[in-house]
Design a protein around this nucleic acid. Structure first.
Length: 255
DNA sequence: ATGGTCGTGGTACGA
């Protein structure tokens, strides 16, 4: 069982790359973020032709999430139950014997900004929801662009990023508050080299210089964590022509 | 070097 997450920064632009990656990586479930497509424009047929079922929740220009699955999808939810939010950032589905929650956590722009306050409020509502989901033991996985680097080892230059957005203490505490529900960061269940990231700014040759952050995560519930067999970042698509600024992240399980 | 690059949409704005 292979699970993955990829912020594609426009599915319109990145569809050929997504199809290419599906063909080689063959994930069972893939969460996409920043599709930037209304539901009427979603490329359902191209994805079905690749052998995947799909659920999607999008809007014009910004945000937008989708889940691709090699097995049938049921019980689709598009919102955090307690949060009235027009921004399309959440897509929960049931497929392949799992509850699979795909998230595009707000970026937050800058510490202290209105968008930063929205991010922290969003994360608080998310925590309430996930606590309810985890009250009943189940195979639950939460994937997505969390827009938070969990620790300094997930940052190319911790001093440069100290208390900046994506790395600030309140954001990290909000993420830790989620992990404290019993969720595991699948990547850190395995030995990793230093300097493995999932996002690199388009500017200043950041990818070539590996000036990145690891902000794309796959979290597993206690019922699922013992079944993890691998957790990694597939950095290859970040090196392709006209790439997303994020690379796909992957978790593998055996059950 | 105090910027820099993308995507969207048709101009600034979000990331």
């Amino acid at each position: 069982m292979k699970l993955a997450s990829w912020n594609v920064n426009s599915l319109n632009v990145r569809l050929p790359q997504v199809l290419e990656w599906l063909d080689t990586a063959r994930p069972n479930l893939l969460g996409l973020q920043e599709t930037k497509l209304t539901d009427e424009c979603f490329p359902v047929e191209a994805i079905r032709a690749a052998g995947y079922e799909v659920a999607y929740s999008g809007q014009k220009t910004y945000n937008g999430v989708a889940v691709l699955s090699r097995s049938p999808i049921t019980d689709v939810l598009t919102d955090i139950p307690t949060l009235d939010d027009h921004q399309r950032r959440v897509l929960a589905v049931t497929a392949a014997g799992l509850r699979f929650i795909n998230l595009y956590v707000p970026n937050g722009q800058a510490v202290g900004s209105d968008k930063y306050a929205y991010k922290l409020d969003w994360l608080a509502h998310l925590r309430t929801w996930l606590a309810e989901e985890l009250a009943s033991p189940q195979r639950l996985v939460i994937v997505g662009d969390f827009n938070i680097a969990p620790r300094d080892q997930d940052v190319h230059d911790p001093q440069e990023w100290r208390e900046q957005v994506l790395c600030s203490t309140p954001e990290r505490e909000a993420l830790q508050h989620l992990l404290d529900l019993g969720l595991a960061d699948s990547f850190r269940r395995f030995p990793q080299k230093d300097g493995i990231f999932s996002w690199w700014d388009y500017r200043m040759n950041s990818f070539r210089r590996n000036r990145g952050l690891r902000i794309d995560l796959i979290l597993t519930s206690p019922a699922l964590t013992p079944s993890l067999t691998a957790g990694y970042v597939d950095q290859a698509p970040r090196g392709w022509a006209r790439p997303s600024d994020h690379a796909p992240v992957v978790a593998e399980l055996s059950f």
